[in-house]
């Protein structure tokens, strides 16, 4: 884990591939805030500038909840690169987050 570029190559992910991420949270609860900050720090550490993160408050978008089949929050959906992966929780288990994102 010296430089991010080489690490990405090591993980078999094309250097130019962008991560498309969506984080669904329910309002500004403590768990939401925790999830956002935990995720941010992981992403900043491992995927600097290689990701797009959209944070959505499900209270504001009830229709999306059904569309995206959301029940447990916070929920992070990795749309790209495939496969689609869903991560539930406040992102405090860093190893699992990395595994979920395919950055193991």
């Amino acid at each position: 884990m010296s430089t991010e570029g080489s690490s990405l190559q090591d993980w078999g992910i094309a250097a130019d591939e962008k991560f498309s991420l969506r984080l669904f949270v329910a309002g500004a609860s403590s768990i939401s805030i925790r999830a956002i900050s935990n995720l941010q720090s992981i992403l900043d550490e491992h995927l600097k500038d290689r990701y797009e993160l959209e944070i959505i408050d499900i209270h504001q978008q009830p229709l999306l909840v059904k569309e995206e089949n959301i029940f447990a929050v916070p929920l992070l959906i990795k749309k790209l690169p495939s496969p689609i992966k869903r991560l539930v929780g406040d992102m405090s288990d860093k190893a699992k987050v990395l595994k979920g994102l395919g950055l193991e």
């Binding site: 925790r34 499900i58 959301i70 029940f71 447990a72 539930v88 406040d90 992102m91 699992k96 987050v97």
Partner: peptide, 18 residues
């Protein structure tokens, strides 16, 4: 699904409520 820590079922609540 990958569980990465604490969560709740607020999504289900909102869905149901809606």
């Amino acid at each position: 699904i990958e569980e990465t820590g604490e969560y709740d079922l607020q999504g289900l609540f909102i869905r149901l409520g809606y």
